[in-house]
Amino acid sequence: MNPDLVLWLAAILFGIGALGLMTRRNALVAFMCVELMLNAANLVLVTMSNVHGGLDGQVAAFFVMVVAAAEVTVGLSIIVMVYRSRRSTSVDAANLLKQ
């Protein structure tokens, strides 16, 4: 098959993930959008592994998964902590950085 199509799919998924990250206020949904973007990247890696005929891309995707797992663990605990103190998971509520 034509690997370009898969790459386009990955790009579309990545764009949708970015879109959700920037529009959704719920931190959990935004976080899931990040995961979607990571998955899109993984898809590129696997496709390229296929294109080049080597397994390195798949190993890289494997590492991405590991990193994503670690990231989710820490990120979710941060969200839980924020929720515990602010009673909200809205990313707009945590706007202390302004000014």
Binding site: M1, N2, P3, D4, L7, W8, A10, A11, I12, F14, G15, A18, V44, T47, M48, N50, V51, H52, G53
Partner: peptide, 16 residues
């Protein structure tokens, strides 16, 4: 998304 497609969306037609 367009950037990605433009940047890496045109690999060799056939995969190895």
């Amino acid at each position: 998304a367009g950037l990605i497609i433009a940047g890496i969306g045109h690999v060799a037609a056939a995969s190895a």
